[in-house]
Design a protein around this nucleic acid. Structure first.
Length: 473
RNA sequence: GCCCGUUUGGUGUAGAGGUUAUCAUGCAGGAUUGUCAUUCCUGCGACCCGGGUUCAAUUCCCGGAACGGGCGCCA
Protein backbone atom coordinates (compact mmCIF):
# COMPACT_ATOMS: atom_id res chain seq x y z
CA UNK A 1 0.00 0.00 0.00
CA UNK A 2 1.46 3.39 -0.93
CA UNK A 3 2.41 5.49 2.04
CA UNK A 4 1.17 9.05 2.28
CA UNK A 5 3.33 11.16 0.00
CA UNK A 6 5.60 13.66 1.66
CA UNK A 7 4.53 17.09 0.52
CA UNK A 8 6.90 19.50 -1.09
CA UNK A 9 6.45 23.22 -0.58
CA UNK A 10 7.81 25.28 -3.43
CA UNK A 11 8.77 28.94 -3.01
CA UNK A 12 6.09 31.39 -4.09
CA UNK A 13 6.02 35.05 -5.09
CA UNK A 14 5.48 35.92 -1.42
CA UNK A 15 8.03 33.72 0.33
CA UNK A 16 11.25 31.87 -0.25
CA UNK A 17 10.71 29.43 2.63
CA UNK A 18 7.90 28.23 4.83
CA UNK A 19 8.17 28.72 8.56
CA UNK A 20 8.28 24.96 8.98
CA UNK A 21 11.33 24.85 6.72
CA UNK A 22 13.08 27.49 8.83
CA UNK A 23 12.87 25.03 11.73
CA UNK A 24 13.42 21.73 9.92
CA UNK A 25 16.20 22.99 7.64
CA UNK A 26 17.43 25.73 9.98
CA UNK A 27 20.94 24.39 10.51
CA UNK A 28 21.67 24.71 6.81
CA UNK A 29 20.03 28.12 6.48
CA UNK A 30 21.95 30.00 9.18
CA UNK A 31 23.27 33.26 7.73
CA UNK A 32 21.12 32.99 4.62
CA UNK A 33 18.59 35.69 3.68
CA UNK A 34 15.00 34.47 3.50
CA UNK A 35 11.57 35.95 3.02
CA UNK A 36 8.80 34.38 5.07
CA UNK A 37 5.15 35.24 5.58
CA UNK A 38 2.36 34.41 7.96
CA UNK A 39 -0.01 35.50 10.70
CA UNK A 40 1.32 37.49 13.65
CA UNK A 41 0.74 34.88 16.33
CA UNK A 42 2.12 36.90 19.24
CA UNK A 43 4.59 39.67 19.85
CA UNK A 44 6.63 40.54 22.92
CA UNK A 45 8.69 43.61 23.67
CA UNK A 46 7.74 47.23 23.41
CA UNK A 47 11.21 48.63 24.05
CA UNK A 48 14.37 48.52 21.99
CA UNK A 49 13.62 45.10 20.62
CA UNK A 50 10.69 42.92 19.68
CA UNK A 51 10.04 39.20 19.40
CA UNK A 52 7.27 38.37 16.97
CA UNK A 53 5.99 34.83 16.51
CA UNK A 54 4.96 34.26 12.92
CA UNK A 55 2.68 31.34 12.01
CA UNK A 56 1.88 29.77 8.65
CA UNK A 57 0.38 26.47 7.53
CA UNK A 58 3.60 24.62 8.23
CA UNK A 59 4.64 25.88 11.64
CA UNK A 60 5.87 28.79 13.64
CA UNK A 61 9.07 30.83 13.69
CA UNK A 62 10.19 33.73 15.84
CA UNK A 63 11.17 36.97 14.19
CA UNK A 64 13.68 39.01 16.16
CA UNK A 65 13.68 42.74 15.50
CA UNK A 66 16.04 45.50 16.63
CA UNK A 67 16.13 49.10 15.42
CA UNK A 68 19.71 48.94 14.11
CA UNK A 69 18.78 46.16 11.68
CA UNK A 70 15.17 47.01 10.92
CA UNK A 71 14.96 50.78 11.46
CA UNK A 72 13.00 52.74 14.07
CA UNK A 73 9.81 53.13 12.04
CA UNK A 74 9.51 49.51 10.99
CA UNK A 75 10.24 48.38 14.55
CA UNK A 76 7.44 50.47 16.00
CA UNK A 77 5.08 49.31 13.23
CA UNK A 78 5.81 45.72 14.20
CA UNK A 79 5.42 46.50 17.89
CA UNK A 80 2.00 48.08 17.41
CA UNK A 81 0.71 45.52 14.91
CA UNK A 82 -2.42 43.67 16.01
CA UNK A 83 -2.44 39.91 16.57
CA UNK A 84 -3.39 37.84 13.54
CA UNK A 85 -2.39 40.50 11.04
CA UNK A 86 -0.57 39.03 8.05
CA UNK A 87 2.95 40.13 7.31
CA UNK A 88 5.96 39.35 5.22
CA UNK A 89 9.42 39.42 6.76
CA UNK A 90 12.81 39.44 5.09
CA UNK A 91 15.91 38.73 7.16
CA UNK A 92 18.68 36.29 7.90
CA UNK A 93 18.30 32.97 9.63
CA UNK A 94 20.04 32.52 12.96
CA UNK A 95 20.04 29.93 15.70
CA UNK A 96 17.95 31.07 18.67
CA UNK A 97 19.71 31.59 21.95
CA UNK A 98 18.76 28.57 24.04
CA UNK A 99 16.35 29.26 26.92
CA UNK A 100 17.57 29.15 30.49
CA UNK A 101 16.86 25.77 31.97
CA UNK A 102 16.91 24.70 35.59
CA UNK A 103 19.74 22.41 36.75
CA UNK A 104 19.18 18.84 35.71
CA UNK A 105 16.71 19.68 32.97
CA UNK A 106 17.67 18.83 29.41
CA UNK A 107 17.88 21.85 27.12
CA UNK A 108 15.47 21.82 24.13
CA UNK A 109 16.76 20.97 20.64
CA UNK A 110 18.16 23.90 18.66
CA UNK A 111 15.58 26.26 17.16
CA UNK A 112 15.95 28.92 14.50
CA UNK A 113 14.71 32.47 14.04
CA UNK A 114 14.76 35.24 11.47
CA UNK A 115 16.63 38.49 12.21
CA UNK A 116 14.35 40.98 10.46
CA UNK A 117 15.84 43.48 8.04
CA UNK A 118 12.54 44.53 6.49
CA UNK A 119 8.84 43.88 7.02
CA UNK A 120 5.69 44.40 4.97
CA UNK A 121 2.33 44.49 6.69
CA UNK A 122 0.08 42.70 4.19
CA UNK A 123 -3.29 42.91 5.92
CA UNK A 124 -3.88 44.32 9.36
CA UNK A 125 -6.25 42.45 11.71
CA UNK A 126 -9.00 44.51 13.24
CA UNK A 127 -9.08 44.36 17.04
CA UNK A 128 -10.69 43.00 19.08
CA UNK A 129 -10.85 39.56 17.51
CA UNK A 130 -14.29 37.92 17.75
CA UNK A 131 -12.49 35.02 19.36
CA UNK A 132 -8.93 34.64 20.62
CA UNK A 133 -6.83 32.43 18.37
CA UNK A 134 -4.16 31.84 21.02
CA UNK A 135 -6.31 32.22 24.14
CA UNK A 136 -6.97 29.24 26.35
CA UNK A 137 -10.40 30.51 27.42
CA UNK A 138 -13.18 28.31 26.08
CA UNK A 139 -15.30 29.57 23.20
CA UNK A 140 -18.90 28.53 22.58
CA UNK A 141 -19.51 26.45 19.46
CA UNK A 142 -21.88 29.01 17.99
CA UNK A 143 -19.33 31.82 18.36
CA UNK A 144 -16.75 29.57 16.77
CA UNK A 145 -18.91 28.66 13.80
CA UNK A 146 -19.95 32.27 13.23
CA UNK A 147 -16.25 33.11 13.01
CA UNK A 148 -15.01 29.84 11.60
CA UNK A 149 -12.17 31.48 9.64
CA UNK A 150 -10.63 32.54 12.94
CA UNK A 151 -11.57 29.36 14.77
CA UNK A 152 -9.68 27.43 12.09
CA UNK A 153 -6.52 29.34 12.93
CA UNK A 154 -6.53 27.73 16.36
CA UNK A 155 -3.97 24.94 16.37
CA UNK A 156 -6.22 22.12 17.55
CA UNK A 157 -9.01 23.05 15.14
CA UNK A 158 -6.57 23.26 12.26
CA UNK A 159 -5.19 19.85 13.27
CA UNK A 160 -8.70 18.37 13.18
CA UNK A 161 -9.14 19.28 9.53
CA UNK A 162 -5.69 18.12 8.57
CA UNK A 163 -6.57 14.77 10.16
CA UNK A 164 -9.84 14.76 8.26
CA UNK A 165 -7.87 15.04 5.03
CA UNK A 166 -5.66 12.16 6.13
CA UNK A 167 -8.62 9.91 6.96
CA UNK A 168 -9.97 10.44 3.45
CA UNK A 169 -6.53 9.93 1.93
CA UNK A 170 -5.92 6.63 3.73
CA UNK A 171 -9.47 5.39 3.14
CA UNK A 172 -9.24 6.20 -0.55
CA UNK A 173 -5.83 4.56 -0.87
CA UNK A 174 -7.11 1.40 0.77
CA UNK A 175 -10.10 1.04 -1.54
CA UNK A 176 -8.04 1.73 -4.64
CA UNK A 177 -5.72 -1.01 -3.39
CA UNK A 178 -8.70 -3.40 -3.28
CA UNK A 179 -9.59 -2.58 -6.88
CA UNK A 180 -12.30 0.04 -6.34
CA UNK A 181 -12.79 2.91 -8.81
CA UNK A 182 -13.65 6.40 -7.62
CA UNK A 183 -16.93 7.67 -9.09
CA UNK A 184 -19.38 10.52 -8.76
CA UNK A 185 -23.16 10.27 -8.92
CA UNK A 186 -25.61 13.16 -9.38
CA UNK A 187 -26.62 15.31 -6.45
CA UNK A 188 -29.62 16.70 -8.29
CA UNK A 189 -32.25 14.02 -8.69
CA UNK A 190 -35.77 13.85 -10.03
CA UNK A 191 -37.34 11.47 -7.52
CA UNK A 192 -37.05 10.47 -3.93
CA UNK A 193 -34.20 8.00 -3.99
CA UNK A 194 -35.07 5.79 -1.08
CA UNK A 195 -38.28 7.14 0.39
CA UNK A 196 -38.57 7.55 4.10
CA UNK A 197 -36.52 10.65 4.70
CA UNK A 198 -37.39 14.24 3.86
CA UNK A 199 -35.56 15.79 0.93
CA UNK A 200 -34.68 19.34 0.06
CA UNK A 201 -36.79 20.36 -2.94
CA UNK A 202 -35.38 22.55 -5.68
CA UNK A 203 -36.28 23.61 -9.17
CA UNK A 204 -34.33 22.24 -12.10
CA UNK A 205 -35.32 24.58 -14.91
CA UNK A 206 -39.06 23.80 -15.25
CA UNK A 207 -38.89 20.45 -13.44
CA UNK A 208 -39.22 19.83 -9.72
CA UNK A 209 -36.09 18.14 -8.37
CA UNK A 210 -34.38 17.31 -5.08
CA UNK A 211 -30.94 17.23 -3.54
CA UNK A 212 -29.84 13.61 -3.33
CA UNK A 213 -30.10 11.90 0.04
CA UNK A 214 -27.52 9.23 -0.89
CA UNK A 215 -25.77 7.77 -3.92
CA UNK A 216 -27.43 4.42 -3.20
CA UNK A 217 -29.49 3.81 -6.31
CA UNK A 218 -26.91 5.23 -8.69
CA UNK A 219 -24.02 3.23 -7.35
CA UNK A 220 -26.16 0.13 -7.80
CA UNK A 221 -26.70 1.10 -11.44
CA UNK A 222 -22.89 1.17 -11.73
CA UNK A 223 -22.95 -2.52 -10.76
CA UNK A 224 -25.44 -3.18 -13.51
CA UNK A 225 -23.02 -1.24 -15.72
CA UNK A 226 -20.20 -3.64 -14.99
CA UNK A 227 -17.96 -1.23 -13.07
CA UNK A 228 -17.73 -4.06 -10.56
CA UNK A 229 -16.23 -2.09 -7.63
CA UNK A 230 -16.92 1.61 -7.11
CA UNK A 231 -16.57 4.10 -4.31
CA UNK A 232 -17.65 7.68 -3.89
CA UNK A 233 -16.88 10.34 -1.32
CA UNK A 234 -19.52 12.99 -1.67
CA UNK A 235 -22.25 15.04 -0.04
CA UNK A 236 -25.64 13.75 1.00
CA UNK A 237 -28.55 15.96 1.96
CA UNK A 238 -31.32 15.19 4.42
CA UNK A 239 -34.10 17.62 5.28
CA UNK A 240 -34.74 16.04 8.69
CA UNK A 241 -35.31 18.57 11.46
CA UNK A 242 -33.11 16.71 13.88
CA UNK A 243 -31.11 18.51 16.47
CA UNK A 244 -28.45 16.29 17.99
CA UNK A 245 -24.70 16.05 18.44
CA UNK A 246 -24.45 13.55 15.59
CA UNK A 247 -26.72 14.84 12.81
CA UNK A 248 -26.17 17.26 9.97
CA UNK A 249 -28.38 18.22 7.05
CA UNK A 250 -25.41 18.03 4.72
CA UNK A 251 -22.75 15.44 5.38
CA UNK A 252 -20.09 13.55 3.49
CA UNK A 253 -20.91 9.97 2.78
CA UNK A 254 -18.15 7.50 2.05
CA UNK A 255 -19.87 4.87 -0.09
CA UNK A 256 -18.87 1.68 -1.81
CA UNK A 257 -20.67 -0.84 -3.98
CA UNK A 258 -19.18 -4.19 -4.89
CA UNK A 259 -20.32 -6.80 -7.40
CA UNK A 260 -20.33 -10.58 -6.82
CA UNK A 261 -20.35 -9.93 -3.09
CA UNK A 262 -22.55 -10.51 -0.07
CA UNK A 263 -23.06 -8.42 3.06
CA UNK A 264 -20.35 -10.50 4.77
CA UNK A 265 -17.92 -9.71 1.95
CA UNK A 266 -18.37 -5.93 2.18
CA UNK A 267 -18.20 -5.99 5.97
CA UNK A 268 -14.73 -7.34 5.35
CA UNK A 269 -13.92 -4.42 3.04
CA UNK A 270 -15.17 -1.98 5.67
CA UNK A 271 -13.25 -3.38 8.59
CA UNK A 272 -10.06 -3.67 6.55
CA UNK A 273 -10.44 -0.05 5.42
CA UNK A 274 -11.01 1.25 8.95
CA UNK A 275 -8.11 -0.82 10.21
CA UNK A 276 -5.93 0.65 7.47
CA UNK A 277 -6.99 4.22 8.31
CA UNK A 278 -6.31 3.76 12.01
CA UNK A 279 -3.00 2.00 11.60
CA UNK A 280 -1.83 4.55 9.02
CA UNK A 281 -2.67 7.40 11.35
CA UNK A 282 -0.99 5.66 14.25
CA UNK A 283 2.24 5.24 12.28
CA UNK A 284 2.33 8.58 10.42
CA UNK A 285 4.47 11.19 12.23
CA UNK A 286 2.50 14.10 10.78
CA UNK A 287 -0.75 12.62 12.02
CA UNK A 288 0.79 11.96 15.40
CA UNK A 289 1.77 15.63 15.56
CA UNK A 290 -1.85 16.59 14.86
CA UNK A 291 -3.03 14.26 17.61
CA UNK A 292 -0.49 15.81 19.98
CA UNK A 293 -1.75 19.29 19.09
CA UNK A 294 -5.32 18.24 19.87
CA UNK A 295 -4.18 16.67 23.13
CA UNK A 296 -2.28 19.81 24.14
CA UNK A 297 -5.52 21.74 23.80
CA UNK A 298 -7.52 19.07 25.60
CA UNK A 299 -5.10 19.33 28.52
CA UNK A 300 -5.89 23.05 28.89
CA UNK A 301 -9.58 22.15 29.02
CA UNK A 302 -9.09 19.36 31.60
CA UNK A 303 -10.08 16.72 29.06
CA UNK A 304 -8.42 13.30 28.78
CA UNK A 305 -6.06 12.89 25.84
CA UNK A 306 -7.27 11.01 22.79
CA UNK A 307 -5.49 7.83 21.79
CA UNK A 308 -5.37 6.27 18.35
CA UNK A 309 -6.09 2.63 19.23
CA UNK A 310 -5.85 0.43 16.14
CA UNK A 311 -8.90 -1.90 16.25
CA UNK A 312 -8.29 -5.63 16.01
CA UNK A 313 -9.52 -7.61 13.02
CA UNK A 314 -12.09 -8.98 12.64
CA UNK A 315 -14.50 -6.58 14.36
CA UNK A 316 -17.04 -8.26 16.65
CA UNK A 317 -20.33 -9.23 15.01
CA UNK A 318 -23.47 -9.21 17.12
CA UNK A 319 -26.41 -10.35 15.05
CA UNK A 320 -29.66 -8.46 15.55
CA UNK A 321 -31.28 -11.48 17.14
CA UNK A 322 -28.51 -11.68 19.75
CA UNK A 323 -28.50 -7.92 20.22
CA UNK A 324 -32.16 -7.98 21.26
CA UNK A 325 -31.50 -10.83 23.69
CA UNK A 326 -28.46 -9.07 25.19
CA UNK A 327 -30.34 -5.78 25.60
CA UNK A 328 -33.18 -7.58 27.37
CA UNK A 329 -30.75 -9.42 29.64
CA UNK A 330 -29.29 -6.06 30.61
CA UNK A 331 -32.66 -4.65 31.55
CA UNK A 332 -33.51 -2.78 28.36
CA UNK A 333 -37.07 -2.41 27.11
CA UNK A 334 -37.20 -3.68 23.54
CA UNK A 335 -39.15 -6.12 21.40
CA UNK A 336 -37.95 -8.17 18.46
CA UNK A 337 -38.66 -6.04 15.40
CA UNK A 338 -37.96 -2.70 17.10
CA UNK A 339 -35.15 -0.45 16.04
CA UNK A 340 -32.37 -0.20 18.63
CA UNK A 341 -32.65 3.27 20.15
CA UNK A 342 -29.91 5.28 21.81
CA UNK A 343 -30.55 4.01 25.32
CA UNK A 344 -30.55 0.39 24.20
CA UNK A 345 -27.45 1.01 22.10
CA UNK A 346 -25.71 2.10 25.29
CA UNK A 347 -26.66 -1.21 26.89
CA UNK A 348 -25.51 -3.18 23.86
CA UNK A 349 -22.20 -1.29 23.69
CA UNK A 350 -21.22 -2.38 27.19
CA UNK A 351 -18.23 -4.64 26.73
CA UNK A 352 -17.81 -3.54 23.11
CA UNK A 353 -15.28 -0.73 23.46
CA UNK A 354 -14.62 -0.26 19.75
CA UNK A 355 -16.27 -0.88 16.40
CA UNK A 356 -18.80 -3.71 16.10
CA UNK A 357 -21.17 -4.95 13.42
CA UNK A 358 -24.87 -5.67 13.85
CA UNK A 359 -25.72 -7.96 10.91
CA UNK A 360 -29.02 -9.66 9.95
CA UNK A 361 -31.65 -7.03 10.75
CA UNK A 362 -35.34 -7.88 10.33
CA UNK A 363 -36.35 -7.35 6.72
CA UNK A 364 -39.18 -4.99 7.60
CA UNK A 365 -36.75 -2.56 9.27
CA UNK A 366 -34.67 -2.26 6.12
CA UNK A 367 -35.22 -0.41 2.84
CA UNK A 368 -36.61 -2.02 -0.31
CA UNK A 369 -33.21 -2.48 -1.92
CA UNK A 370 -31.88 -4.79 0.80
CA UNK A 371 -31.61 -8.47 -0.07
CA UNK A 372 -32.99 -11.35 1.95
CA UNK A 373 -32.47 -15.08 1.77
CA UNK A 374 -35.69 -17.07 2.07
CA UNK A 375 -35.63 -19.26 5.16
CA UNK A 376 -33.30 -17.03 7.16
CA UNK A 377 -35.55 -16.20 10.08
CA UNK A 378 -35.06 -14.66 13.49
CA UNK A 379 -36.01 -16.28 16.79
CA UNK A 380 -39.59 -15.07 16.37
CA UNK A 381 -39.83 -16.67 12.93
CA UNK A 382 -39.74 -13.41 11.02
CA UNK A 383 -37.73 -12.87 7.86
CA UNK A 384 -34.20 -11.58 8.30
CA UNK A 385 -32.38 -9.33 5.86
CA UNK A 386 -28.82 -9.10 4.66
CA UNK A 387 -28.59 -5.56 6.01
CA UNK A 388 -26.03 -4.57 8.67
CA UNK A 389 -24.91 -1.62 10.73
CA UNK A 390 -21.47 -0.73 12.00
CA UNK A 391 -21.50 0.97 15.38
CA UNK A 392 -18.93 2.54 17.63
CA UNK A 393 -20.28 2.64 21.15
CA UNK A 394 -23.83 3.94 20.89
CA UNK A 395 -23.31 5.63 17.54
CA UNK A 396 -24.07 4.27 14.12
CA UNK A 397 -21.19 4.76 11.69
CA UNK A 398 -22.35 2.79 8.69
CA UNK A 399 -25.29 0.99 7.30
CA UNK A 400 -24.96 -1.42 4.46
CA UNK A 401 -25.94 -4.76 3.11
CA UNK A 402 -26.32 -7.06 0.20
CA UNK A 403 -28.72 -5.56 -2.36
CA UNK A 404 -31.78 -7.14 -3.88
CA UNK A 405 -30.81 -8.05 -7.44
CA UNK A 406 -33.92 -10.15 -8.21
CA UNK A 407 -36.21 -7.77 -10.08
CA UNK A 408 -39.49 -9.45 -9.05
CA UNK A 409 -38.50 -9.39 -5.38
CA UNK A 410 -37.33 -5.79 -5.72
CA UNK A 411 -40.69 -4.70 -7.13
CA UNK A 412 -42.52 -6.64 -4.42
CA UNK A 413 -40.41 -4.90 -1.81
CA UNK A 414 -41.27 -1.50 -3.28
CA UNK A 415 -44.97 -2.28 -3.27
CA UNK A 416 -44.83 -3.71 0.27
CA UNK A 417 -43.29 -0.45 1.44
CA UNK A 418 -46.00 1.60 -0.27
CA UNK A 419 -43.69 2.78 -3.04
CA UNK A 420 -44.56 2.65 -6.72
CA UNK A 421 -42.12 0.72 -8.92
CA UNK A 422 -43.13 3.05 -11.77
CA UNK A 423 -41.67 5.98 -9.87
CA UNK A 424 -38.38 4.10 -9.65
CA UNK A 425 -38.33 3.02 -13.28
CA UNK A 426 -34.90 4.60 -13.89
CA UNK A 427 -33.60 2.28 -11.17
CA UNK A 428 -35.69 -0.84 -11.73
CA UNK A 429 -34.68 -0.76 -15.41
CA UNK A 430 -31.12 -1.49 -14.32
CA UNK A 431 -32.22 -4.94 -13.12
CA UNK A 432 -34.02 -5.96 -16.28
CA UNK A 433 -31.09 -6.87 -18.50
CA UNK A 434 -28.76 -8.84 -16.27
CA UNK A 435 -27.16 -7.68 -13.05
CA UNK A 436 -24.56 -9.20 -10.73
CA UNK A 437 -25.44 -9.81 -7.09
CA UNK A 438 -23.86 -6.94 -5.20
CA UNK A 439 -23.45 -5.33 -1.78
CA UNK A 440 -22.16 -2.09 -0.34
CA UNK A 441 -22.26 0.42 2.47
CA UNK A 442 -22.27 4.11 3.30
CA UNK A 443 -20.03 5.45 6.03
CA UNK A 444 -20.50 8.84 7.70
CA UNK A 445 -17.14 10.58 7.39
CA UNK A 446 -17.96 13.03 10.16
CA UNK A 447 -18.90 10.27 12.57
CA UNK A 448 -15.66 8.45 11.94
CA UNK A 449 -13.85 11.69 12.64
CA UNK A 450 -15.71 12.10 15.91
CA UNK A 451 -14.42 8.70 16.98
CA UNK A 452 -10.87 9.50 15.90
CA UNK A 453 -10.60 13.00 17.36
CA UNK A 454 -12.83 12.70 20.39
CA UNK A 455 -15.10 15.48 19.11
CA UNK A 456 -18.30 15.51 21.13
CA UNK A 457 -20.24 17.35 18.45
CA UNK A 458 -20.27 16.41 14.79
CA UNK A 459 -20.21 20.09 13.86
CA UNK A 460 -16.62 20.26 15.06
CA UNK A 461 -15.58 17.93 12.26
CA UNK A 462 -17.10 19.97 9.41
CA UNK A 463 -15.67 23.23 8.13
CA UNK A 464 -19.00 24.96 7.63
CA UNK A 465 -21.68 22.69 9.06
CA UNK A 466 -25.24 22.79 7.84
CA UNK A 467 -27.76 22.06 10.52
CA UNK A 468 -31.36 22.87 11.23
CA UNK A 469 -30.61 26.49 12.08
CA UNK A 470 -27.42 27.20 10.23
CA UNK A 471 -26.91 27.81 6.52
CA UNK A 472 -24.35 30.58 6.97
CA UNK A 473 -21.41 30.90 6.81
C1' G B 1 -41.87 17.30 16.18
C1' C B 2 -41.57 16.53 21.81
C1' C B 3 -39.12 17.49 26.71
C1' C B 4 -35.50 20.25 29.66
C1' G B 5 -32.11 24.18 30.27
C1' U B 6 -29.21 28.64 29.27
C1' U B 7 -28.58 33.94 27.84
C1' U B 8 -23.74 39.10 32.19
C1' G B 9 -17.52 43.32 28.83
C1' G B 10 -14.66 41.27 22.18
C1' U B 11 -14.24 35.96 24.29
C1' G B 12 -15.22 32.52 28.41
C1' U B 13 -17.33 33.12 33.30
C1' A B 14 -18.91 34.52 39.02
C1' G B 15 -22.99 36.72 41.38
C1' A B 16 -27.08 39.27 44.08
C1' G B 17 -34.43 42.36 44.53
C1' G B 18 -30.93 48.23 46.23
C1' U B 19 -23.24 46.46 44.97
C1' U B 20 -18.33 50.92 42.43
C1' A B 21 -21.38 43.81 39.12
C1' U B 22 -16.50 38.96 40.11
C1' C B 23 -12.52 36.51 37.77
C1' A B 24 -9.69 35.06 33.52
C1' U B 25 -8.48 36.33 28.70
C1' G B 26 -8.33 40.56 25.49
C1' C B 27 -7.55 45.76 24.28
C1' A B 28 -4.93 50.74 25.35
C1' G B 29 -0.81 53.14 27.86
C1' G B 30 3.64 52.58 30.83
C1' A B 31 8.00 49.94 33.25
C1' U B 32 11.16 45.59 32.65
C1' U B 33 13.13 41.71 29.48
C1' G B 34 17.47 37.75 23.93
C1' U B 35 12.14 36.99 25.54
C1' C B 36 10.44 31.35 25.58
C1' A B 37 2.57 30.89 27.84
C1' U B 38 7.65 37.09 30.17
C1' U B 39 6.60 39.72 34.61
C1' C B 40 4.72 44.09 36.97
C1' C B 41 1.73 48.84 37.16
C1' U B 42 -2.46 51.89 35.35
C1' G B 43 -6.68 52.20 32.53
C1' C B 44 -10.95 50.36 29.03
C1' G B 45 -14.97 47.29 28.26
C1' A B 46 -21.09 43.72 29.93
C1' C B 47 -26.37 42.24 32.74
C1' C B 48 -30.69 39.26 25.07
C1' C B 49 -35.64 41.83 23.70
C1' G B 50 -40.82 43.17 25.19
C1' G B 51 -44.41 43.31 29.02
C1' G B 52 -45.68 42.62 34.30
C1' U B 53 -44.89 42.62 39.88
C1' U B 54 -42.19 46.17 43.15
C1' C B 55 -40.55 52.32 46.22
C1' A B 56 -36.66 49.78 43.34
C1' A B 57 -35.69 44.39 38.30
C1' U B 58 -29.82 42.84 35.08
C1' U B 59 -31.84 39.55 39.40
C1' C B 60 -38.74 37.51 40.48
C1' C B 61 -43.11 36.31 36.87
C1' C B 62 -45.11 35.95 31.66
C1' G B 63 -44.08 36.11 26.45
C1' G B 64 -40.50 36.33 22.42
C1' A B 65 -35.82 35.51 20.21
C1' A B 66 -31.16 33.21 20.08
C1' C B 67 -28.35 29.26 21.77
C1' G B 68 -27.36 24.54 24.34
C1' G B 69 -28.70 19.47 26.11
C1' G B 70 -31.84 15.00 25.75
C1' C B 71 -35.29 12.05 22.61
C1' G B 72 -37.34 10.39 17.93
C1' C B 73 -34.96 9.38 12.95
C1' C B 74 -30.62 8.43 10.68
C1' A B 75 -24.87 8.25 8.45
Amino acid sequence: MPRSMTSTWHPTAYRTHTLGQIQSEGAGLVGQEVTVAGFLHASRGKGAMCFADLRDGTGMTQVFAKADLLGEDALSTLQSLTRESTLQVTGTVAQKRPPKVADGETPPPPAYEVLASSITVVAEAQAPLPLGVTDTVGVGLDTRLDNRFLDLRRAHVNAMFRLRGKVLEFGRAHLIGEGFVETHTPKIVATATEGGTDLFPMTYFETPAFLNQSPQLFKQLCMSGGLERVFEIGPAFRAEKHDTYRHLNEFISFDIECSWATDDDVMGVLERMIHHIWSSIASDPTCQAHVATINAWRATQDEDPIEVIVPELPFPRVEYDDAIRIIKERGGTIEWGNDIDAENSDLLAQGLPQFYFIPRWPMDLKPFYIHHVDGEEGSTGRQLSRGFDLNFGRDEMTSGGQREHRIEVLCDNLRNMDLDPEAFEFYVAGFRHGVPPHAGWGLGVERILMVLTGAKNVRETVLFPRDRRRVCP
